[in-house]
């Protein structure tokens, strides 16, 4: 197992994902997309794909900073707006966040992070109504699998174009699309406090995490088999536990079945259901 195993034909992936965005919007009767831009790589890539797929006039991106957001996030978000040729839009969520946070003395960093993610969700969904647009999500496969994302926060969206790309594959596709180097090269961060990085939080580099996930998930290897590929058993088991404990985020809430046909159990229609 090397990083080459995860290499993709980015020309094919780019073509496929642009068509996915176009068709999924079109089938749902939409022409406009709404994207919350964080200044990070995932939303930058999704913005670029959406602009290429739909045209800059049909993509409504918005930067939603909190007062603790870093200057780099603002700078990189601005760079992406300019790179994609769309007008700068910013809405500061500090006021609405602080109104609630003032009522919650002693709130910890995790709760604060989740709150900010859910406030951004509320804003982006409202903006999407205003623009008659669909919210395009920016979650990647690595974070979906380990649950490094906020349920009904940054995970909330209508479609997830890069949800089957590991973070390292996201980076590779971003390079292929010529995204600004400063956006590609910076350490991934949820930007909830100064110096926070994903890799610090998850406790492993994305290069290692993605290889372990690939072996566990795509290849269905046991933790012992993954370990025999040169990864510490303790780390592999930790990743396995993260997958397990975040399963609830990846499914719709179970409904207690009573009737003949129950939503999610035996009332089964595709999302692209047309009558």
């Amino acid at each position: 197992m090397t990083m080459d195993t995860l290499a993709l034909n980015n020309t094919l992936v780019e073509d496929y994902l642009k068509r996915f965005i176009q068709e999924e919007l079109h089938t749902s009767g939409f022409t406009e997309a709404c994207i919350a831009l964080s200044g990070g790589l995932d939303s930058a890539l999704v913005l670029k794909l959406a602009v290429d797929a739909l045209g800059a006039d049909h993509v409504h991106a918005i930067f939603l900073p909190y007062k603790a957001s870093s200057d780099e996030s603002r700078r990189d978000a601005r760079t992406m707006f300019e790179f994609c040729g769309i007008p700068w839009q910013e809405l500061d969520i500090s006021g609405m966040a602080d109104a609630y946070l003032a009522l919650q003395p002693g709130i910890d960093r995790l709760r604060t992070g989740n709150l900010l993610a859910r406030l951004r969700m509320a804003v982006i969904f409202d903006q999407s109504k205003k623009e008659n647009a669909l919210v395009v999500g920016t979650s990647n496969k690595s974070e979906l699998l380990v649950g490094y994302s906020t349920w009904y926060g940054d995970m909330a969206c209508a479609i997830m174009p890069i949800g089957d790309l590991y973070k390292t594959q996201v980076r590779s596709l971003a390079r292929h699309l010529g995204l600004p180097q400063q956006v590609i090269a910076k350490p991934p961060s949820a930007d909830l406090w100064a110096g926070q990085t994903d890799e610090g939080e998850i406790g492993v580099s994305y290069e290692t995490l993605d290889q372990v996930l690939y072996l566990l998930v795509d290849q269905r290897c046991s933790s012992a088999e993954v370990s025999s590929e040169g990864f510490e058993l303790d780390l592999v088991q930790r990743v396995e536990r993260k997958i397990l404990t975040s399963q609830f985020k990846r499914v719709s809430p179970p409904i207690a079945k009573l009737s003949q046909r129950t939503v999610g159990i035996d009332f089964l229609y595709p999302r692209d259901w047309r009558k």
Partner: peptide, 8 residues
Amino acid sequence: VGFDDGLG
């Protein structure tokens, strides 16, 4: 060709 949900 085309997509039915996520299947392309």
